[in-house]
């Protein structure tokens, strides 16, 4: 049982990599910086793990590490999305 559930996770990982390759090769060079900061914000998904760690009932060393993880992941998420939006706002087609 253990092995099959672990294999399922690897399946998901491998397929997601392929989806990523397909999507990202289509992004034009002009958008490479926003792509980087935007995908960076997505990597802040670690926040899910951080919340589970920081929200444990007893206060232990594990909770402290969880708190640090929440801070770091939230900087990543909030900073990443905001700065990407700031950049993308500028990519407008100019009307003359």
């Amino acid at each position: 049982m253990y092995v099959t559930s672990f294999l399922m996770l690897i399946y998901v990982f491998v397929l997601a990599i392929f989806v990523g390759f397909e999507l990202i090769t289509k992004v034009p060079p002009t958008l490479h910086t926003p792509l980087m900061s935007g995908s960076n914000a997505i990597s802040g998904i670690t926040i899910v793990g951080a919340l589970l760690s920081a929200g444990a009932e007893e206060f232990t060393i594990s909770t402290i590490l969880g708190l640090l993880a929440v801070i770091f992941a939230m900087i990543n998420v909030v900073g990443g999305y905001l700065v990407t939006d700031r950049m993308l706002k500028m990519f407008k087609k100019k009307v003359r």
Partner: peptide, 26 residues
């Protein structure tokens, strides 16, 4: 991104694995 994915393997959580893999590929 790959770091986020490996965290997903620790927690056995698909959304971390998928999101991390997308960033890793990018």
């Amino acid at each position: 991104g790959i770091a986020a994915s490996t965290t997903g393997f620790i927690l056995e959580n698909n959304v971390l694995i998928i999101a991390g893999a997308l960033v890793g590929a990018s």
